[in-house]
Nucleic acid binder design. Structure first.
Lengths: 361, 361
DNA sequence: ATGAAAGCGCTAACAG
DNA sequence: CTGTTAGCGCTTTCAT
C-alpha cells in the first residue's frame, strides 16, 4: 500500500539484523549463507516488496546485461522478422534488448559510437547494416563482442556473421524460371538510399553503401544465365532505391520495352510486390503474361501467392544472438561465418512463358 | 591503437591536473567551468578516446535513460508498425529503447515485474497488451510513468492511453458494405491465445484476456446493422484465435452455410487475408462473389488491394512515446485518453453483392 | 556463516 | 571557477 519509496538492500539488512553483504548473498543464491537466514531475508524482501536496482548491480558487476541491436529501416518486414527471432531468444535470458534504428548518415555515426563505445551494452548485433570502410575502425576499437547478420564486408573477417547464401538463392530463382522455359528474364534490384558524405566539401560522387545482397542475388542470376547459354541483356537489368514504388516504376519501364521480358526476378519480396502492381496496372496477367519471383519469403508473400526464395529470417536472428551470447560469455573460438541456406518456394506467380499457354483468351 | 583498458573520468582529471568534479562539469557543458580548462579537458578526453560509462552515470543521476516497451506478438505487422513509430521519436532522444516481448502467462508476470519494478527503465509503453484485473495492482504500485497504446480497461483510467476508435471503425466498415447493397454481412474476429491460469489448481474455465479491439469493432458492426434495420444473424458471427489460418477456417465454414454472407468484415487485415485465402480455395471471386473488408491497413493490405479501415499505427506509436516522454519530464496534467481516428480505405475487395453484377459468367 | 570495508564511475552539494 | 566530499545501491574480497 505505502510504496512511495523503493527499498534497498540496506533496509532489508537492518530489519533482518544482518549486513548488506549477507543480504546480497542471500538474494543471489550464494551457498555461503545459512539456510535459516536466507529464508528470513527472503521473507523480509518479499514483505517489503523489494526489487533490486539493476543499475547499481550493473555498475558493481561491470556488466550491463543488455545487448544492443542495430538495424536500418525498422519498418522493413525482413528486418522485423529477423528481430523477432532475436527477441525469442533474449526473452529467456537475463539480457535486455536495446534497439537502435539507423536510417541516415548522421544517426549512423552517432549510433555506432553511442552504442558501441559508451558501455551501455555487453554486445551488439548489427543487422543488415551497410558497413563503411571508415566504420571498421570503430568496430575494431570496441572490445565488446559484435556479430553481424546479413552483411559481408572484406574488412569484417574478424567478426562473426550470419549470412544467407544470396548467390545460390539468386541462382535458384533464375534456374526455376529457366526450367519453366523462360529465356527473357529481367532482374530488378536495389541500391540503398543511405549515402556517405564525401569527406571533403566537394560535391563529388556520393558513394552508396555496399548493400551486397541485391548484388549477390544478381550474381546468382547471371550464373544461371551463363549456364543456360543466354547472354545477359542490359535492358533487363535495373536497380534503384529499395521499395515497392521504385520497383513498380522499374518494372513498368522494363515491360514497355519493345521486346519485354517474360519473367522478372526481384531481389526482394517488397520489390516483387511492386512488380506485381506494375503488371496489374499494365493489365498483364500474372503468371500467364509475366512470371515473377521474389526473395525473402516475408509473411505477405504467402498471401500474395508469390513464388520466392525463402531465407530463414527468423532463424538467422536466433542464430545471431545465440552466437553473440556465446561470445559474451567468453567463447574464444575463431570468428565464424554461418551460412544459412535458402530454399525456393513455388507458389502462383510463376508459370511457363506466354506462348506455351496462351491458347485461347 | 592501444585500447585494452577504457578510460575513466579520473584519468582525464589526472592528466589535466584537475579533479574529477571539474572534468564532469566540463563534459556536461556546465557553465561553471573556465572555457580554457574545458577545452583542455575536452582535448584530453578526445585524445584518450574517452567514452563515459553510462551505467555509472545512471546510478549517480538516478535515471536509467531508457524507456521500456512491452509488446505481445512481436511478429504481428500491426505491432511492428506501431513500434517503428516509437523508434522514430526515440532516435532523437537520449533514451534507449528496451523491448520486452510477452507471449505467455509466465513471461507476462515476470515481464511486468522485471521491467516495471526493477528500475531499469524510466517509463513504460505498453502496447496492445491485455491487462488483467490482477495486473492493475502492479501497475499502480509502480511509480514510473506508463502509457498504454491500444488498450482500454476500466481500471486503467488513471493512466494515459492512446487508442483508436474501434467502434467507429467497425461501423465505417460495415456501413460501407451496407451502402454497397449488402444485407448478409459476416463478422470474423479474434480472441487471444493467452490464458490466465486459474488461481486455484482446479482446471476450471480458463479466462481469456480482454482483447477489446476485436469486440469493439464488432460493436461498431452491430451498430451499423441495427441502424439499417438488419437483424444480426448468429451464423454470421465467428471468433477464434488471431491468425490468418484460423480466419480462413472460420470463413470457409461461414461460406458453406446454406445461406452464406455476401460480404465479410474481418477484425484485422491478417484475418482478412485469411478470408481471401478461403475465397480462393472455394473458387469464389473477390469482390464479385464475396466482398471483404479488413482493419488496420497494414503494409501488405496495399499489395493485396484490400479495402480496409486504416488506423494510424505509426502515429499511435509516436504519440504514445511523446506522451510518455512528457510524463517522464514531469508533466502533471491529468491522465488523458487520446483517441486516434480511423479512416476507410476503399480498394478492390469490395463491390456490390453478386446479383447486381454477375450478369454473364 | 557473517561482518567490515572498499569500490564500480560518475554527479552534485558545499565550500572556498 | 574549482576542489572536497559524499553518495547512488549493490557486489565482493578479506577477515573473523
Amino acid at each position: 500500500m505505502s510504496n512511495k519509496k523503493t527499498h534497498t538492500i540496506l533496509d532489508i539488512a537492518q530489519i533482518a539484523g544482518v549486513t548488506p553483504g549477507t543480504v546480497s548473498r542471500a538474494l543471489n543464491d550464494s551457498p555461503l549463507v545459512n539456510e535459516r537466514t536466507r529464508e528470513r531475508i527472503l521473507k523480509i524482501a518479499k514483505d517489503l516488496n523489494y526489487t533490486p536496482n539493476m543499475v547499481a548491480r550493473r555498475l558493481s558487476v561491470g556488466k550491463t546485461f543488455a545487448i544492443g541491436v542495430i538495424v536500418p529501416f525498422f519498418t522493413r518486414p525482413s528486418i522485423s522478422e529477423r528481430l523477432s527471432g532475436v527477441v525469442s531468444i533474449l526473452s529467456n535470458s537475463p539480457y535486455d534488448l536495446v534497439i537502435h534504428n539507423i536510417e541516415n548518415t548522421k544517426q549512423r555515426t552517432i549510433g555506432f559510437q553511442d552504442m558501441l563505445l559508451k558501455s551501455r551494452i555487453d554486445g551488439a548485433l548489427i543487422i543488415s547494416m551497410p558497413i563503411l570502410d571508415e566504420d571498421i575502425a570503430y568496430l575494431q576499437e570496441t572490445n565488446i563482442p559484435i556479430v553481424f547478420i546479413d552483411r559481408k564486408h572484406p574488412g569484417l573477417s574478424d567478426f562473426d556473421s550470419i549470412i544467407s547464401d544470396d548467390i545460390a538463392g539468386g541462382y535458384k530463382a533464375t534456374k526455376h524460371l529457366l526450367d519453366l522455359g523462360h529465356r527473357k528474364i529481367g532482374f530488378i534490384g536495389d541500391i540503398t538510399e543511405i549515402y556517405t558524405k564525401p569527406a571533403n566539401g566537394t560535391d563529388k560522387e556520393l558513394n552508396p553503401f555496399q548493400f551486397t545482397s541485391s548484388k549477390d542475388r544478381y550474381k546468382g542470376y547471371l550464373k544461371a544465365l551463363v549456364e543456360a547459354d543466354i547472354p545477359s541483356n542490359p535492358n533487363y537489368f535495373s536497380e534503384d532505391n529499395h521499395g515497392h514504388i521504385e520497383a513498380k516504376s522499374m518494372a513498368i519501364k522494363m515491360l514497355r520495352l519493345s521486346d519485354p521480358p517474360t519473367a522478372i526476378f526481384a531481389a526482394s519480396d517488397t520489390q516483387a510486390f511492386g512488380v506485381i502492381q506494375a503488371a496489374r496496372e499494365m493489365e498483364l496477367n500474372v503468371p500467364a503474361d509475366l512470371s515473377i519471383v521474389g526473395f525473402d519469403d516475408v509473411q505477405a508473400a504467402e498471401f500474395m501467392e508469390l513464388t520466392t526464395i525463402r531465407q530463414m529470417l527468423y532463424r538467422s536472428g536466433q542464430q545471431g544472438v545465440k552466437k553473440l551470447l556465446e561470445r559474451i560469455s567468453g567463447s574464444n573460438s575463431r570468428s565464424h561465418q554461418i551460412n544459412i541456406p535458402t530454399e525456393i518456394i513455388i507458389r502462383k506467380t510463376t508459370a511457363p512463358p506466354n506462348g506455351q499457354v496462351k491458347i485461347a483468351a
